[in-house]
Simulated scan of single mutants.
Amino acid sequence: MQNGATIVGGNRRGNATNQLYDPNDLYVDDDQTIYIVDFVNHRIVEYKCGATTGRVVTGEYGSGNRSNQLNTPTDMIIDKEKDSIINCNYNNKRVVRWPRQNGTNGEIIISNVGYHGLTMDVDGFFYVADCDKHEVRQYRMRERQETVVAGENGEGNRLDQLHAPRYVFVDRDHSVYVSDGYNHPVMMWMEGEKQGIVVASG
């Protein structure tokens, strides 16, 4: 059995650029650049491959609700088509797009929602896990359409319900995989289905 190696952080918790405080999610780009959602520090930090010190790419102005601030970010993706970072900003109840290069202000693209997890499918549609409403929604931004693709029946533990969903993944067949927070399994909802299937349970 091999031992793991620390590639980011490892300098105790803190807010220096070589420290993290409750990292909540990460994204690895094609060039092995790592983006860390640094939850308690209210920022996203970029680490180039092999670097021991990161660069704050969003949230460098502390916690808050201004367009240049984050408040408890939970998840993020890279939109390569628009060269931007999109993140869930939980306490501000919004999803925000930030330019990846020299972007100090974010653009709110979805608001007034309790989103925790975020992903994008091969067609460029967004999927967000709303842990307040216990459902996953698909957003087609160009058509300004939103559709509930998992949940929609309130909080609960039935196969047609979720309870505080956290993270979401969508495969090439548009099946939605959800980590169902307080129910503890991972659920799969096939496209168009009204209830999910347990694919992993604790």
Rank of each mutant, 00 (worst) to 15 (best):
M1Y: 12
M1D: 10
A5V: 15
A5E: 15
I7D: 03
I7W: 10
G9C: 10
N11L: 06
R13H: 11
R13E: 12
A16N: 14
A16H: 11
Q19E: 10
Q19K: 07
L20D: 00
L20Q: 00
Y21C: 11
N24M: 14
D25A: 14
V28R: 09
D29F: 11
Q32C: 09
T33F: 09
V37E: 02
D38N: 10
F39Q: 07
F39T: 06
V40C: 11
N41W: 07
I44W: 03
V45F: 07
G50P: 08
A51T: 10
T53Y: 10
R55Y: 09
V56F: 08
V57H: 02
T58V: 15
G62L: 08
N65M: 09
N65S: 15
R66H: 14
N68D: 15
N71Y: 13
T72M: 14
T74Y: 14
M76E: 00
K82D: 11
I86V: 11
C88M: 12
N89H: 08
N92Q: 06
K93N: 08
R94L: 09
R94V: 00
V95C: 00
W98R: 02
W98N: 07
P99L: 09
R100T: 03
N102Y: 15
E107I: 11
I108L: 00
H116L: 10
L118I: 01
L118S: 00
L118E: 07
M120R: 13
M120F: 07
V122K: 15
V122Y: 13
G124M: 06
F126I: 06
V128H: 01
V128D: 05
A129T: 01
D130I: 11
D132W: 15
D132V: 13
K133S: 01
E135W: 02
E135L: 13
Y139R: 04
M141V: 12
M141T: 09
R142W: 14
E143N: 10
E146G: 03
E146Y: 07
T147Q: 12
A150K: 06
G151K: 03
E155G: 01
E155V: 08
R158F: 01
L162C: 03
P165R: 04
P165I: 05
R166V: 07
Y167L: 08
H174R: 14
S179F: 05
G181M: 09
P185S: 04
P185F: 02
V186P: 00
M188F: 01
M188T: 05
W189R: 00
Q195D: 02
Q195H: 10
Q195V: 06
Q195P: 03
V198W: 04
V199K: 07
